[in-house]
Amino acid sequence: MDRVPVLKIGDILLVSIQVDMDDNTALALQDTLTERIVETSAHGVIIDITALDIVDSFIGRMLSTIASVSRVLDAETVVVGMRPAVAITLVELGLSLTGVRTALNVERAMELLELSRPARASSLSVVGDGLDVFDDDSPVA
């Protein structure tokens, strides 16, 4: 069975789907991804589907499920690189991938996630460097 690698960049997980997705691959990906989100307390998940020529209702539902699961774990999911033909097909099928955010490419997705960075226990250690979650006017700083 093909496995889809999950890469960690900072506190973002990057999944680039390069293989044909079947039911087992998709379920395995959901499992791996959920575990990795908890493990790394990632705040964002980027799923790159540039290589996918076909996105059917099954893959569509998988993307929605991943987004929902990630949201429960307080991570934002961004789907990137959808091809025009795929987008048209999804619209014609009436699938709108509810709850899934989209971006044109990985770079933009990272910008998007940067803007919505939530407060995290793992990032509290950097307080004092003036870098992170708490602003100057925050009472803790």
Binding site: V86, A87, L90, V91, S96, T102, L104, A109
Partner: peptide
């Protein structure tokens, strides 16, 4: 509307 939805799916 369809065009707008498709563009959204692509992240625009």
């Amino acid at each position: 509307l369809k065009t707008v939805m498709a563009a959204r799916l692509m992240g625009a």
